[in-house]
Amino acid sequence: MSTTPIPHLYRSLLRELRLASRLSRTKRNPAPIVQLRSLVASSSSAESLAKTFLETRDFLRASRIHGELLKRYNPIHGMSEEERIVATANRVGLNTPIEYKKE
């Protein structure tokens, strides 16, 4: 098992929660922090608590890195349907036609 002390794992887990959030500190939901504190208070084994913190931290880190890679290597990720069509057409050297709008 890991020899990393629990306070270090707790701080690294809080750091990953902060990096995963897009909101400022005052607008974040306090529920995850409250759950972590209750988990620490109700834990019977330091080893199981360390394992839970380690796995949760690794999951949050992998999710954050996956999102960053999606943004980097899939430039149309997160665009609306119209923006995606225009970007795809531009990528192959075409222009999308101007849509006719009845007035």
Rank of each mutant, 00 (worst) to 15 (best):
S2C: 03
T3P: 03
T3M: 04
T4W: 02
T4N: 01
T4H: 01
P5W: 00
P7K: 07
P7I: 01
P7Y: 04
H8G: 00
H8L: 10
Y10C: 05
Y10T: 14
S12F: 08
S12L: 15
L13N: 05
L14V: 10
L14H: 05
R15A: 09
E16N: 05
E16H: 08
L17I: 14
L17K: 03
R18H: 10
R18N: 12
L19C: 04
L19D: 11
A20I: 03
S21I: 08
S21Y: 08
R22P: 09
L23W: 10
S24M: 09
R25Y: 13
R25P: 05
R25D: 14
T26S: 13
T26Y: 08
T26F: 11
T26N: 03
R28I: 07
N29V: 07
N29C: 12
P30A: 06
A31C: 02
A31H: 15
A31D: 11
I33N: 03
V34C: 01
V34R: 13
V34E: 13
L36K: 05
L36F: 04
L36D: 03
R37A: 14
R37Y: 09
S38H: 13
S38Y: 05
S38K: 12
V40S: 03
S42W: 04
S42G: 05
S43A: 15
S43D: 06
S43K: 02
S44Y: 05
S44A: 08
S44G: 15
E47S: 13
L49E: 02
L49T: 07
L49R: 02
L49M: 12
A50H: 00
A50G: 00
T52Q: 10
T52N: 06
F53K: 00
T56E: 02
T56R: 02
R57H: 09
R57K: 15
D58R: 14
L60G: 06
L60N: 07
A62W: 05
A62T: 12
S63C: 08
S63L: 12
S63F: 06
R64T: 03
I65S: 09
G67K: 02
E68T: 11
L69G: 01
L70N: 06
L70F: 00
L70Y: 00
L70A: 02
K71C: 06
K71E: 12
Y73M: 00
P75C: 05
H77V: 09
H77G: 04
H77M: 04
G78Y: 00
G78W: 00
G78I: 00
G78H: 04
G78K: 01
M79G: 02
S80D: 01
E81D: 13
E81W: 11
E81N: 09
E81C: 04
E82F: 06
E82Q: 14
E82C: 10
R84F: 10
R84P: 02
I85C: 04
I85A: 15
V86K: 15
A87S: 14
N90E: 15
N90Y: 11
N90D: 13
N90R: 15
R91I: 04
R91C: 11
R91D: 14
V92R: 13
V92D: 03
V92T: 08
G93S: 10
G93L: 02
G93H: 02
G93V: 03
L94V: 09
N95C: 08
T96N: 06
T96K: 04
T96A: 11
P97R: 12
I98P: 01
Y100C: 06
Y100N: 08
Y100H: 14
Y100I: 14
K101H: 11
K101L: 13
K102G: 06
